[in-house]
């Protein structure tokens, strides 16, 4: 941090090469998935919902790169359309959970006192149930449908964001720059949301990325268990479930490729979340 200007700029050294690589791979995977999902709106090799474009259980070939399922529908087309469902459900749910959880968490953390106690006890009771179990029960109770699945998933996610935002704000609200912000005439909500929350964007983003992986897994799990979406919806979890029989008789591709798709998506999100945790802090940025 000297003001002396070296005659030549020193070569840029990456202090955290692993983070950068993880971030690149994570973002690369994510962009690929989003691209596939978008592409599926305009083009798929075959119609994803039409059975019988090939024979049942065609092995991967030039005509059907990922094979066909039991009814002869093209696996590649179904996987591409499935990306819409899995990404759409997971990301929408995460966005809702992030927004609501952060707002309540910041308020509870900054305000403290009775509000904080009430909110946190509620969260603890809620979190006593495992997330997937809770999601299953609620989907069973309120009925299937994409909107219900999204709402249930976001509801399951809220407590995590709430806790994280609350902890972040609580740790920072007595720091001197918060004091300084109050001293220059900022109202409390402005100090909390405009001054303190941006300091927590790094941890929140990192967690969001990892949580999105969890949400994608739960989406697939619900599909696998036959909850949430109709049986013919080409959702990946759904597809794995439908391909189970084939695994026994050697038609591995029907379950394998949807599984691989889920692995790639969750893996990419995890990598990205990990790297984001390192890189979003401006003090660590180059």
């Amino acid at each position: 941090m000297t003001d002396a200007k070296p005659a030549k700029r020193a070569p840029v050294r990456r202090r955290r090469p692993r983070s950068y690589w993880a971030l690149r791979i994570g973002i690369g995977l994510l962009v690929f998935y989003v691209a596939v999902a978008l592409l599926s709106f305009v083009w798929t090799p075959y119609d994803a919902l039409t059975p019988g474009v090939g024979d049942g259980y065609d092995a991967p070939s030039w005509a059907f790169p990922l094979g066909t399922d039991r009814l002869g529908a093209d696996m590649l087309s179904r996987l591409m359309v499935g990306a819409r469902y899995d990404l759409g459900i997971a990301f929408t749910a995460v966005a809702i959970a992030l927004t609501i959880g952060t707002i309540i968490g910041v308020l509870a953390g900054y305000h403290g006192g009775a509000l904080d106690t009430a909110v946190m006890r509620g969260v603890e009771i809620f979190q006593a149930f495992p997330g997937l179990l809770f999601a299953m029960l609620v989907v069973q109770a309120v009925g299937a449908g994409i909107v219900n699945v999204i709402l249930v998933l976001s509801f399951v996610g809220i407590p995590d964001y709430l806790r994280l935002a609350r902890a972040e704000i609580r740790a920072k609200k007595d720091w001197q720059y918060a004091e300084a912000a109050r001293l220059t005439g900022n109202l409390p909500w402005r100090v909390a949301f405009r001054h303190l929350l941006p300091n927590s964007v790094g941890p929140l983003l990192a967690f969001t990325s990892i949580n999105a992986a969890f949400a994608a897994l739960v989406t697939a799990s619900l599909g696998f268990l036959g909850l949430g979406l109709g049986p013919n919806v080409p959702e990946w979890g759904n597809m794995i479930a439908r391909g189970q029989d084939g695994v026994m008789t050697g038609e591995w591709w029907v379950s394998f490729f949807p599984g691989l798709a889920i692995l790639g998506l969750t893996g990419g999100l995890y990598l990205m979340g990990d790297a984001l945790a390192d890189l979003t802090d401006p003090r660590r940025r180059r």
Binding site: Q176, Y177, A180, A181, L183, T184, G185, P282, R283
Partner: peptide, 24 residues
């Protein structure tokens, strides 16, 4: 008090770098 702080009375702390928000 909110109207007094900053507008009427302001304060400089000992550790200025801690009093500035690190992300802006």
């Amino acid at each position: 008090m909110q109207g007094i702080r900053g507008a009427e009375i302001s304060m400089v702390f000992q550790d200025a770098r801690a009093a500035l928000n690190p992300v802006f």
